[in-house]
Design a protein around this nucleic acid. Structure first.
Lengths: 139, 139
DNA sequence: GTAACTGCAAAATATTTGCATCCTT
DNA sequence: AAGGATGCAAATATTTTGCAGTTAC
């Protein structure tokens, strides 16, 4: 399994305490993270601005990607498959739990095809399903 | 065809100049609108705050709905089918044009079914397709 | 006339930028 | 040592709230 340091090295980024910790959060979490989650889970050890810049850097390098949400908050999740720099392969379904509010990447569920009206040329597909996740369903 | 005044009357809202004009924008536009679009297209005739409150009121009344976008901006579009108050029926596909940036509700394209892993109980489905829209494709 | 709506001011929140300092390589 | 990364301050942008004045019904 690739560690945080491996990922940083592979993408040509300096290995710093902040990047390691933030990357760890993504590696440990099944769900997606918001900027606020990261501040909270790192106990505000890093400047708010550093978190912004780190997330932007990770997106640029193809380490994480932004997730579209129904409530228009900004969420990020690891790119589990091979995302080249600036070209994300993010064609899996995202699940948002109505109960615990977690956003989960269903990496194995690809977005189904859909037939568009004449004249539309599709390029990228995204799909968001909301409902009860495994934990909240079981509980 | 229902006019802006009809819609306001039907939903029990006072008919004011601002609401009529903002509603007109939605009725005239195929695409979805952002807060900034509305300010621009009304020549800032109304207070920024009024626009925020008007949009919120319309969402509450089921006249418009928020659209999830891949770049996490906030967009609104008319509810063309029957959206009861606080309960939107928004199960059609949204199309975002990579070229002209318009967001279009494909009302006739319903979100396709998808098979989720065991343990997930789906409730609502949303789908966003990006690419070239009719106009940008033709041109 | 009364309740609902609007505008203004201001607060709260979110994001970006510049620059000096510090850390990684 | 050099370039990149961080922290702080501050600028900018976005959204919310309170309240007084105005308008729709």
């Amino acid at each position: 399994m690739e560690t945080q340091a491996d990922i940083l090295k592979r993408t040509g980024l300096s290995i710093t305490e902040g990047r390691k910790q933030i990357l760890d959060l993504f590696l440990e979490n099944e769900g997606a993270l918001a900027h606020a989650d990261i501040e909270k889970q790192t106990d505000a050890a890093f400047d708010r601005v550093t978190v912004y810049r780190t997330l932007q850097t990770f997106v640029d390098k193809g380490i994480i990607h932004q997730i579209p949400t129904t409530d228009n908050s900004v969420l990020y999740a690891l790119c589990k498959h091979n995302c080249a720099q600036g070209h994300h392969h993010d064609n899996h379904v995202h699940f948002i739990c109505d109960n615990c509010d977690k956003t989960i990447c269903l990496d194995d569920v690809t977005v189904p095809a859909v037939k568009l009206p004449a004249g539309f040329k599709p390029n990228k597909f995204a799909m968001i399903v909301s409902g009860a996740c495994r934990e909240c369903q079981a509980g």
